[in-house]
Design a protein around this nucleic acid. Sequence first.
DNA 1: GTCTATAGCTCGATAGAC
DNA 2: GTCTATCGAGCTATAGAC
Lengths: 195, 195
Amino acid sequence: MKDALLQAAKDLLWEDGYGRMSPARVLSVSGAGQGSLYHHFSGKAGLAKAAIEEIEIELSDAARAVFDPSTPPLDRLRAYLLAERNGLKGCRLGRLANEAEVLASPDLSAPIARYFTLVQLCIATALEEAMSAGQIDRRIDAYATAAMLLAVVQGGYVISRASDRGEQIVSATNAAWAMLKLLQKAPNGPKKSES
Amino acid sequence: MKDALLQAAKDLLWEDGYGRMSPARVLSVSGAGQGSLYHHFSGKAGLAKAAIEEIEIELSDAARAVFDPSTPPLDRLRAYLLAERNGLKGCRLGRLANEAEVLASPDLSAPIARYFTLVQLCIATALEEAMSAGQIDRRIDAYATAAMLLAVVQGGYVISRASDRGEQIVSATNAAWAMLKLLQKAPNGPKKSES
DNA sequence: GTCTATAGCTCGATAGAC
DNA sequence: GTCTATCGAGCTATAGAC
């Protein structure tokens, strides 16, 4: 039952956000009764904290897989930018960062901040490795550019949802990868990259 | 009184979003009584519609000023990317695009979509003019790159808020402008750009 | 056009039986 | 560990006096 509650909470957080994840709806989706929720968790906030921490683990694991250090740095960046995304649903953690209630609670916002920090660091590391290897223009600022690429993904979700056009995030991330490619330089002339 | 209600609604939409913009709070902030709200507007949704449309006008006017066609295209883009922004407050319209309730109502979401479309078009036009003038690498896709730059700004707000570090959006937009500069080419050698 | 009073509902949480 | 019953608060909206 505890797992069912957590799963329902994760689903509702993605669908509707924290504000609309009411205990009543969690119970209805999970099939549990009132008592179960307040037996296993301290309340709505406690359930959300546990759910958000699970989401953080899932997304962080996925990020670490994409940014595996044994993959060539530019391939990591391409995999990250061109990953398949459902623009209309949004980032499971990023969307929560838009709710004042979530940001007001360190329990709820810390996992989100940790995840973004992790991804930004992964991107910056890949950029630095690519620069060291002479594969990309050395004049860029790795950490600021990492913030930019993370922002392209998060903002891509925002403009996709706002326009109800899931392709918008694809255009945005494709354009970001295209710009990175224009800054590439292989030892022998400009490198030819598959898309 | 109608203006006071609208101003309170605009303030609360920015602070807290639509879900938490309750009639009671609007009345308390504006100083109006119950009757005034329901006399001038059809209800909470009607008030929010009017408020969002006013925000759309304000932001669209600001965008048209930044993207004035008499300004050189690259200067427009620099002005847009390097504009001062409070990363911790977020975009007045973009933040609303993260609420399911808002997206479910065409009345509320249409102004947001229109504003994003306008900005994306302004950016794309500036990029195309810069390409035609030979000021920037012609290999980029103007419309997709416009989506990317709009996403950098919107995503910059997201990561600033999530990390509680307002500088993040500045890093992201600075990096975007830096990348554009690296793709610039003036008639006589690489152009030297302030900022 | 503005006010107060209040309806009907859902919210988050608790009590107490089994 | 799970259930049903219920509380007090805040929500959106309406009624009706002035």
